[in-house]
Amino acid sequence: MLRILLHRLLLSVPLLIFVTALTFFLVSLTPGDPAVVILGQNRAPEEYQRLREQLGLMQPVPVQYAGWVETLLHGSLGTSIFNNESVVAKLNARLGVTLSLVVLTSLVSAVVGVALGVASALRRGALARAVDILSLLGIVLPSFWVALVLVAVFAVRLQWLPAIGYVKPSENLGGWLRSLVLPVAVLAGPAIGLIAQQSRNAMLDVLDRPFIRTLRAGGVRPGSLIYRHALRNAGVPILTVIGLVFIALLGGTIIAENVFALPGLGGLAVEATGRHDLPVIQGIVLYFTVIVVVVNLIVDLLYAWLNPRIRVS
C-alpha cells in the first residue's frame, strides 16, 4: 500500500509540471492583453508600455513561467493582475463551493447509479432498458438547457428551490443543501446513467462466473452473495468510472456555477480567462490538477483494498 502511495506521488510531480507549463503557454497564445483591459482603449502608449513592464509581460514566455515556478516554490501563487489580491486567498475563498458541488454530485451519482446498475443486473428487462435511456438522455441533453428547465419549473413556477446563489453550510445547513439541489441535479443526470451502465455490465460479468454459481449452490444468502461477493468483485471497474466522473465534474462546474451564480472556481476561471489574469488561471489549473492527483490516489488505494492482488503486483 505504501509503495502504491509513493509511486503515485512521484508520478504526480511531472504531471503538475507538464499541465502548468502547457496551460501557461496556451494562455499566452490566446488573444487579449491584461494591460489593455486595465487601461482601456484610450490609453497613452507610454503608460501602456510601462504597465506591461510592471506586469512582466515584456519578458519571454519561458522566463515568465520560470518566475511563476519560483514563486510557487516559495509557497505562493502570486497576486491577481487586476487587484493585487493574493491568488491563494482568492482561490481558497471559492474552493469550498466547488468541492461542495463536486463531492455532493459524486456521492449522489455513485449511490443512485450503483443501485440502479445492481438492480438492472438482477432484474434486467425493463429496468435495464430504462438505464440505457437515462444514459442516452444524459449524453444528448445539453446541461445548460436542463439547468434552465429545472430553474423554470422548481424555482420560478413552484418556488421550491432558489434559482441562484450559495449559502455556506456554517451559516445555514438547510440553506446550503437547498442552494445545491438544482446544480447537483443538472450535473448528476449524465453521471448516474454512466455509472449505472458500468455497474450493470460489471455485475453481469461477475454473476456469470463459476464461483458465484458455486456459492449459490452452497446455500449462501442472496444478500450476502450480491453485496459481499459479486459487488466487491465488480468494484474495480465501478470505482474507475466513479473516479472519472469526479474528475469530469471539475469541468462541469464551469457551466453549473455560471448558470446558478455559484461563487466557485469554475466561475472564477471564466472571469480570469476573459480578463487574461494569468496568475489566477495558473492557480486554478494547479488546484484542479492536485485534486485530480488526490482522487486518482484514493481510487488506487481503494483498488488495493478491494483486490489484495493489486498490492503485490
Rank of each mutant, 00 (worst) to 15 (best):
S199H: 11
S199Q: 08
S199R: 01
R200N: 13
R200M: 12
R200L: 12
N201C: 04
N201I: 08
A202T: 00
A202E: 03
M203Y: 09
M203H: 07
M203S: 09
M203K: 06
L204F: 04
L204P: 01
D205F: 03
D205S: 12
D205A: 14
D205R: 11
D205N: 12
D205I: 02
V206M: 11
V206E: 13
L207G: 06
L207R: 04
L207T: 05
L207P: 00
L207E: 09
L207I: 14
D208H: 14
D208V: 07
D208C: 05
D208R: 15
R209W: 05
R209F: 06
F211N: 02
F211L: 05
F211D: 05
R213L: 12
R213I: 01
T214N: 10
T214C: 09
T214V: 10
T214P: 03
T214H: 11
L215N: 12
L215E: 11
R216A: 14
R216C: 04
A217Y: 01
A217F: 02
A217R: 00
G218I: 14
G218E: 13
G218Y: 07
G218K: 14
G218R: 14
G219T: 11
G219A: 11
G219Q: 10
G219R: 06
G219F: 12
V220Q: 07
V220M: 06
V220K: 06
V220E: 09
R221E: 15
R221C: 02
R221H: 11
R221G: 12
P222N: 10
P222Y: 01
P222Q: 10
P222G: 06
P222H: 05
G223D: 07
G223M: 03
G223R: 13
S224R: 15
S224E: 12
S224N: 07
L225D: 07
L225F: 02
L225H: 04
I226K: 08
Y227V: 06
R228S: 11
R228N: 10
R228Y: 03
R228D: 12
R228T: 12
R228V: 06
H229Y: 15
H229R: 11
H229A: 05
A230H: 06
A230F: 04
L231Q: 04
L231V: 00
L231M: 10
L231E: 04
L231I: 01
R232K: 15
R232S: 02
R232W: 02
R232T: 00
N233P: 03
N233A: 14
N233M: 08
A234H: 00
A234S: 05
A234P: 00
G235A: 15
G235L: 13
V236I: 09
V236L: 14
V236P: 03
V236A: 10
P237F: 00
I238W: 07
I238P: 01
I238R: 03
I238D: 07
I238N: 09
L239Y: 05
L239G: 13
L239F: 04
L239N: 12
T240C: 04
T240Q: 09
T240A: 11
T240I: 00
T240D: 10
T240W: 09
V241E: 14
V241P: 10
I242W: 03
I242Y: 02
I242D: 05
G243Q: 10
G243I: 01
G243C: 01
G243K: 02
L244Y: 15
L244R: 06
L244V: 15
V245M: 12
V245L: 03
F246M: 13
F246L: 14
F246S: 07
I247M: 11
I247L: 12
I247Y: 09
I247S: 08
I247W: 08
I247N: 05
